[in-house]
Computed example of a mutant assay.
Amino acid sequence: MEFVRSSPTFRRRRLARRIRRLREDAGLTQEQAAASLDMSTSALSRKETGEVATSVHEVRSMMDLYDAYDPGLVDLARSARAKPWWHAYGITSRGYFDLEEEAVSVRDWQSAFLPGLLQTEDYARGVFDGVSVLADEEIDKAVAARMWRRHRLHDADEPLCFSAVIDESVLRRPVGGPAVIRKQLAALLELMDIPTVTVQIMPVAAGAHRGLEGSFTLLSYADVEENDVLFVEHAVGSLHIDKPDAVATAASTFERMRASALNGEESAALISRLVSDC
Rank of each mutant, 00 (worst) to 15 (best):
G207W: 08
S105E: 14
G214P: 01
H57Y: 11
C278G: 11
A68S: 13
Y96N: 08
D75I: 05
L37H: 07
S7Q: 15
Y96M: 08
E168H: 04
W109F: 08
Y89A: 14
D136L: 15
P115Q: 02
A259R: 07
Q32W: 11
T9Y: 14
R152W: 04
V275H: 01
S132D: 06
L160C: 03
R12D: 12
P84N: 05
L15H: 09
G90S: 12
I91G: 10
L274T: 02
A208I: 03
L239C: 05
L219S: 05
A259E: 08
A53L: 14
K243P: 06
R11V: 10
N263R: 06
G211T: 09
C278P: 01
L15D: 11
A26H: 14
R172L: 05
P244Q: 03
I166G: 10
L114K: 02
L160P: 04
W85P: 12
P71L: 13
L15N: 10
I241Y: 01
R256Q: 15
V204L: 13
R12V: 13
L239E: 05
S276A: 12
R146W: 02
V204T: 12
P178Y: 01
D64T: 15
R125H: 03
F128L: 01
F97P: 11
E101I: 04
D38L: 08
I91R: 02
T49I: 10
V59Y: 13
Q200M: 04
D223I: 15
L37R: 05
S238N: 02
G130P: 00
L171I: 10
F216M: 02
H209E: 07
I181K: 03
R256A: 07
S215Y: 00
G177T: 00
R21Q: 15
Q184S: 03
S7T: 13
H209N: 06
P195N: 11
E51K: 14
R81S: 15
G130Q: 01
M202P: 06
L22D: 15
S93W: 12
L99T: 06
S272M: 06
L191H: 05
A248D: 08
S252R: 09
L171P: 02
R78L: 11
A206Y: 04
G264Y: 09
A124E: 02
P84D: 04
T92C: 07
R11N: 11
H209W: 08
A187L: 01
H151E: 15
G237S: 03
D193W: 03
A145V: 04
A80L: 02
R125Y: 01
W85C: 07
H151D: 09
A235R: 06
W148E: 14
G126N: 00
H154P: 05
S252G: 12
R21K: 09
S40F: 15
P159C: 15
E2Q: 14
S215L: 02
D242W: 06
I241L: 09
A145W: 03
G176D: 03
E190V: 02
I166A: 09
G237H: 02
W85H: 05
E51F: 09
L188C: 00
Y66I: 11
Y123V: 00
R12G: 10
A124C: 03
R273T: 08
D277M: 04
